[in-house]
Computed example of a mutant assay.
Amino acid sequence: MTYGDNTPLRDTPEQRGQAYVLAVARDRHITARARKIRADVLVKKIPERAWQRLSAGAGAKGHRHYDWALTVIADGRPGHRHHGSGSR
């Protein structure tokens, strides 16, 4: 299980109004644009120009670079939700 599938873990920063990023399993269904879609399928639909390579900081083997894109999603709970992908 990835951290984004852990509802109590997601609830804590949301209740505090904190921004956060958590991974979800590729086969998790996400509501985006009024329909449910698998996370891995959603990532493939994001245009190439939307992606940015950013560093997540230095690690034991140097900087950890990930590709990120942002798209609005909805899941019926309060607040704004986005799907940011750290890999393609």
Rank of each mutant, 00 (worst) to 15 (best):
G84R: 08
G84E: 09
T7A: 11
D27V: 02
H80V: 08
R53M: 13
Q52F: 10
V41E: 13
G57P: 04
R33Q: 12
S85E: 05
R38Y: 04
T71L: 08
L22Y: 14
A58D: 11
G76F: 05
D67T: 12
P78C: 04
R88W: 12
R64E: 12
W51Y: 14
G4D: 04
I46T: 06
R33S: 11
R64K: 11
P78K: 08
Q52Y: 08
A25Q: 12
E48S: 10
T31E: 12
A60G: 03
A25R: 14
Q15W: 05
V24C: 10
R77A: 10
H82E: 09
G62A: 03
G76L: 06
A74F: 09
R81C: 01
I37N: 00
G57D: 06
H80L: 10
R28E: 11
H83I: 12
L9S: 00
A23V: 06
R16F: 14
D5F: 01
T31S: 07
Q15L: 14
A69L: 07
A69E: 03
V72G: 00
E48I: 13
T2V: 08
A56G: 11
G17D: 07
L54H: 08
P47V: 01
S55M: 07
P8E: 11
Q52W: 05
P13E: 04
H65W: 15
I46G: 01
H29N: 07
R28Y: 04
V21A: 10
N6T: 03
I37H: 01
G17V: 07
S55R: 03
Q15D: 11
L22K: 09
V24S: 02
P13L: 02
A23H: 07
A56K: 04
L22I: 06
A32R: 11
Y20S: 12
R10S: 01
T71M: 06
T31D: 07
G17Y: 06
L42K: 02
Q52C: 06
M1E: 09
S85G: 02
V24T: 03
H29A: 10
H80G: 04
